[in-house]
Design a binder for these strands. Structure first.
Length: 339
DNA sequence: CAGACGTGGAT
DNA sequence: TATCCAAGTCT
């Protein structure tokens, strides 16, 4: 960048004139700003808005979130994905309640030590809520900086991201929160991944990639790994009381969400009977097929109905199913059963 | 560090 | 349809 103060001025003036009216920009409450940043991880603004409104209605402050039932939090988070985010957020908020008198710490070291607070959220909340002079480096900012500086390093590497963060903090103006949001807003609306609107860019004159005709070839990122394909049989196990078996998912993927019992396709019904301790009638009634794509896996699910007269602790009334948090993957196959 | 971790929008 | 990628963090 040729002239830092010229660059900063152009960017900040552009931001003030063009910033979108987003719900979390109407508040100065550090808790609400923090909540928005947790929701915005790997999630588009348009998706977050209704969830943010729901959460500030249901959990308007630190104490209401800290004291909330985890199952209710998960239900309210249902559909937003990356479900550990809300569990981690509640863990962090409980610590704020217990250790910091329910006030979000304005000390960066204290804030960064909280669960779910990484380099991005730490910088974003500390700069936007408290105007601490820290960068908030997200995917937008990495793309903007790679182009401005004709930087061909692999932007997926943590070491490169750290270097970019330091470069930004070296030019950070006193308006830290606005500056960070301006860089992100520029990336989201002008310096986009495809078909960037360089003609509209307030800092075009500072962009090395634009001068070199290399905007389209930046940023450099290593390719994503191929997804693993997994084939499941999913069972709607019913009894004579209008009940169905649903259980909490174990493990790390979709932990805490409720699921229909699912098994690798070569698992026999006999071994399922053994695992569940049930005698099952299997009329071989096929409910439907669903494909669901995750970041790192693809599930192919085949749904079947089974009946039993036996008792099982995981039976739940069909009327109660909608009250439980369920992933989109399970919702898709469950809807085929309802229909 | 690489891989795990959801879902939906855009091309 | 396939691919990228979106206000990233944890293990």
């Amino acid at each position: 960048m040729l002239n830092i103060s010229d660059f900063n001025n152009n960017l900040l003036v552009w931001y003030q004139a063009n910033k979108r009216d987003l719900p979390w920009r109407r508040t100065s409450d550090p808790y609400r700003i923090w909540l928005s940043e947790v929701m915005l991880q790997q999630t588009q603004v348009i998706t977050v808005i209704p969830y943010f409104e729901k959460f500030i209605t249901n959990y308007p402050d630190i104490d209401s979130l800290a004291d909330a039932d985890e199952g209710r939090l998960l239900k309210d988070w249902e559909g937003l994905g990356y479900y550990n985010r809300i569990r981690n957020f509640q863990t962090a908020v409980k610590e704020v309640q217990n250790t910091y008198d329910s006030k979000v710490p304005d000390d960066p070291d204290a804030f960064f030590s909280l669960k779910g607070v990484g380099p991005y959220i730490g910088g974003a909340v500390q700069s936007i809520a408290f105007n601490n002079l820290l960068a908030a480096v997200d995917g937008n900012v990495l793309r903007v900086m790679a182009r401005l500086n004709l930087d061909y390093r692999d932007m997926t590497k943590a070491s490169v991201q750290k270097s970019v963060k330091q470069n930004i903090e070296a030019i950070m103006p006193l308006e830290a929160g606005d500056f960070n949001q301006a860089l992100m807003e520029l990336g989201a609306t002008i310096c986009t991944p495809r078909a960037p609107k360089c003609i509209m860019c307030p800092v075009q004159g500072h962009c090395e990639a634009y001068k070199a005709g290399e905007v389209a070839s930046l940023p450099v990122k290593k390719k994503a790994k191929a997804k693993k394909e997994i084939y499941y049989n999913v069972y709607f196990i019913l009894n004579d009381n209008e009940e169905i078996i649903l259980r909490k998912q174990e493990g790390t993927l979709l932990q805490g969400m409720y699921e229909l019992p699912k098994y690798d396709i070569d698992t026999s019904v006999e071994s399922i009977e053994e695992e569940l301790g049930l005698t099952l009638d299997h009329p071989n009634l096929h409910v439907g097929s669903v494909k669901h794509v995750f970041t790192h896996q693809v599930w192919y699910m085949e749904g079947y109905v089974l009946y039993t007269k036996d008792a099982h602790p995981d039976f739940i009334s069909l009327n109660e199913v909608e009250k439980l948090p369920m992933s989109k993957a399970m919702q898709k196959i469950y809807r085929q059963f309802e229909g």
